[in-house]
Simulated scan of single mutants.
Amino acid sequence: MRLSQCLFLLLIFFFKGCNTTNTSLEPCYCHDEESSALLQFMQSFTINASASGLVGAYPKVSSWKPAQGGNNTCCCAWDGVECDEETGHVIGLNLRSSCLYGSINSNSSLFRLSHLQRLNLANNHFNYSQNPTSIRNFPRLTLLDLSASVFSGRVPSELSQN
Rank of each mutant, 00 (worst) to 15 (best):
V150Q: 11
H115R: 06
M42T: 10
H125Q: 11
E34Y: 13
N123K: 00
N94C: 07
G56Q: 03
E26F: 04
G153W: 13
E158V: 09
N127R: 11
A122Y: 05
S152G: 06
H115G: 02
Y101T: 02
Q68V: 15
C76A: 03
S98H: 02
G17R: 14
G53F: 06
T87V: 01
Q130F: 06
S35R: 14
G102R: 04
L146H: 07
R96D: 05
G92N: 04
G53P: 02
A57T: 05
D32I: 09
F14Y: 15
S109A: 11
L25P: 00
S52A: 12
L25M: 10
C18W: 13
S52W: 09
F8C: 07
A57Y: 08
F138V: 06
R136D: 04
R96C: 03
N48G: 01
W78M: 06
S44R: 07
T46V: 13
S103A: 10
S62Q: 14
R112V: 00
L113V: 07
I135V: 15
S63W: 12
S108M: 05
R154T: 04
L110T: 06
T87A: 09
E158I: 02
N22G: 00
E33D: 14
C18F: 12
F13A: 09
N124L: 07
I135N: 02
K65W: 14
N131F: 10
H89F: 13
S44P: 01
W78R: 09
N124M: 13
L116C: 08
T87Q: 09
N131Y: 03
L11P: 01
C75T: 03
V90I: 11
A122Q: 05
E86Q: 08
V155D: 00
V61I: 03
C76D: 12
G153K: 08
F8L: 15
S147E: 03
D79S: 14
A122H: 04
S98N: 01
S114M: 10
H31D: 08
C6M: 13
I12W: 08
S149N: 02
A67I: 02
G17K: 12
S147T: 07
P66N: 12
P27T: 11
P132I: 04
P59W: 06
L144V: 05
R112H: 12
P156T: 04
N137M: 13
N120V: 11
G92V: 03
G69E: 15
M1S: 12
F13S: 10
L144I: 09
I47S: 04
Q40Y: 05
P66D: 10
F45Q: 01
I47N: 06
Q68P: 01
A67N: 14
L39M: 06
L110V: 07
E85D: 15
F151M: 02
S160D: 10
K65F: 12
P66R: 12
P59E: 08
R154I: 00
L95P: 08
R154N: 12
L10E: 03
N124W: 15
F111L: 01
N123T: 04
A49H: 08
E85T: 11
R140V: 00
A37I: 01
L146K: 07
S52E: 07
S62Y: 13
M42H: 15
R118K: 15
E82P: 00
C30R: 04
N19G: 10
N124V: 13
